[in-house]
Design a protein around this nucleic acid. Structure first.
Lengths: 215, 215, 215, 215
DNA sequence: GATGAATGAGCATTCATTCAT
DNA sequence: CATGAATGAATGCTCATTCAT
């Protein structure tokens, strides 16, 4: 089947061009910001002609969706990959898990600090849909954190009267601050370690029936 | 001296026109965002001609500074007006003060939600200077919170081993999350009260030598 | 009222710029055709910047309406100005009137041959609306010619069994052919005179009860 | 000779592709007009790739020539096929012949109304060469009609003092009007019959020595 | 000082044409 | 020969800025 093989190869090439454009857009959006970036900047960065851009995306807004989808997916995967809260049985385990996840989130932010900075700093400014996308990511994260709190109460090492919803939002806020700081200085691993400990402490001391147990 | 009087009046009128433009810019920037807003939109909203805009501001970027200065000033004043941490002598007082300030910040955000939304959502996307301005506001707030922690340790009702810098950043994050939520639903006073309590609880339980004292 | 006077002058200047653009568009549309003409061609011909074009017309299609309206109006005025068919009382007068009107139409076509050529040759190619506009002009002319036939029958010097509608269309066709020829050679006054006589002869011999009366 | 046979088949296929493209171009040109039609529209309509278009035609203008040649040829064949004016010997025969030819022309226009509409409405707008092509067709038709008039005079049933050139042009005009009307409503066979009779009457009454003979 | 008409640099987008597969 | 992805010149249109009144 020489036909099919060549078709497959052609499809690969098309996909490669498209991916290159998305990658290029992620780069220049993060560098210059969405609005100041011209389509020609993206094409140039991708090493293709301007017309090629329009073969793959109808306009600048469209490629943004592809860029954001990729970044948001990587961010969400931190929370979802092998991180079911059901496996936590003690406050000590909870501490460990929270610390792990904070580490992973902070590492991802540091590693993709430009993309994440774009997500936080630029997406709301694109349009209402951009802001809505960020809202959606917030919501996902909040729901996930709330689930951890629920399990903690259920298992008896978190006090039953804590405000799950408000606490989830507060925890997300600590993450936002972390992101803000990391984005300014992605190489400062010391801050990340220090801040992670503090965040865990905040979470545990706020929620634990007896925070001293696992201290 | 009819001369001087007329001059004074003229100066007043000029200042009024200028203020009207800043107010108009704040409104349309908040509505549409900085980049999509045209200078003609600002002039139209202010009820003056486009040429008048350029009598008062050299370009679009300039009026943004005036807009941001006003908004940021109102935000900072919440932290500085009659709020010296030296006056706090007990954990109970600390709680009360923290609750008061959270209330004031949340009220301000709700009252000027569009301007504050612009600050958080749009300013980083304008240019590096815009992001720096937001950084600066963050820094001010962090320093102020840090001072409160320092006093708490000094007066003995906060544990000495807490991480002042990291904690300050975490508290700012909780404020960011609050802002995010309030901006989406400025009329929900219930959320504000509930979240305020949770934040105070986070702060006190994290830092207090014996959180139960004032419970 | 210095205010009002300056406003009136300003309005004049605006109208002058607009008229200049319409004039320029008529010229370049006639020269190059509608589709190949760029907005910048029109602006250049009018001696203004491209942006000025868009102050007065939303796009290329819009200015075409203004151009066509002017040309069509001049064309229709030939038929309507002081040309009521009621004043015709004899075949001899009818001949004279037909000859007069043919002369006037042919002169107009010769004088504005580029604009008229545009109307006939380019308008249908612009879009459906362009074709409809030409249809409309056809309809106006046909109705007017039909009215002349009706009067002729009423007054008794045209036979009653002639087909008014079909004949009107045929007469318009003779006019179209004239236009076609005149557009190719606007300076040939000899052809115009010769063709005019033939057309009158066609009309009279087709319709007259006794064509020889006024011969 | 399997070689030659396969070559012959290949040539056939090439010709078929080419014809398909011309047919497709005729269709989409008639639908959208020449300028708004994209090469990709033609290729898509023909069911081939864009590249294939350029294997058969050097550019968009080239295929127009092929389209126009076909349409014009079919139009001209109405006048030339088995229609030598030498075979006419009486006014009655002349009437019949004129009626026949009008019928055939009108039928062709109705049958290929989109292609003919393109010829009349779009060709002059393509470029000077397009207008010249239409001029050429006009000239052919005029010459043919003139020949009929010449024969009529020669045979004595047309008056000797008629203006052959002007009359030919007038008759073409009646055809143009017919085309215009038919193009707007190709299904209206009633109009065609009615208008045909009127045209014949115009022609005969204008030219005949004694029009009443064959009435 | 105020005005808004005029300006043109800048950018998004289209589409005829090329060419590697 | 056929294909359709890639190309970039060409062009419509926007909008920050200027300036004559």
């Amino acid at each position: 089947m020489p036909r099919e093989r060549s078709t497959a190869r052609a499809q690969e090439r098309v996909a490669a061009t498209r991916d290159g454009l998305v990658q290029a857009a992620a780069t220049v959006f993060a560098e210059r910001g969405y609005h100041p970036t011209r389509v020609s900047d993206i094409a140039e960065q991708a090493g293709v002609g301007q017309g090629t851009f329009y073969r793959h995306f109808s306009d600048k807004r469209q490629i943004l969706d592809a860029v954001v989808a990729g970044t948001a997916e990587r961010l969400q995967s931190v929370f979802t990959d092998e991180n079911a809260p059901e496996q936590i049985d003690s406050l000590a385990e909870y501490r460990e898990r929270a610390s792990d996840m904070a580490t992973r989130v902070f590492e991802l932010i540091a590693a993709e600090h430009r993309e994440m900075g774009f997500l936080l700093g630029q997406l709301p400014s694109v349009d209402d849909d951009g802001a809505a996308t960020l809202d959606f990511v917030h919501g996902i994260a909040a729901a996930m954190i709330a689930e951890y709190y629920r399990i903690g109460i259920e298992r008896g090492f978190f006090r039953a009267d804590l405000d799950i919803d408000a606490a989830s939002i507060a925890v997300i806020g600590m993450g936002l601050s972390a992101a803000w700081k990391i984005l300014r200085n992605p190489a400062d691993t010391g801050f990340r370690a220090q801040y992670r400990e503090t965040v865990v402490e905040f979470i545990v001391r706020y929620a634990a029936v007896d925070p001293t147990i696992a201290n």
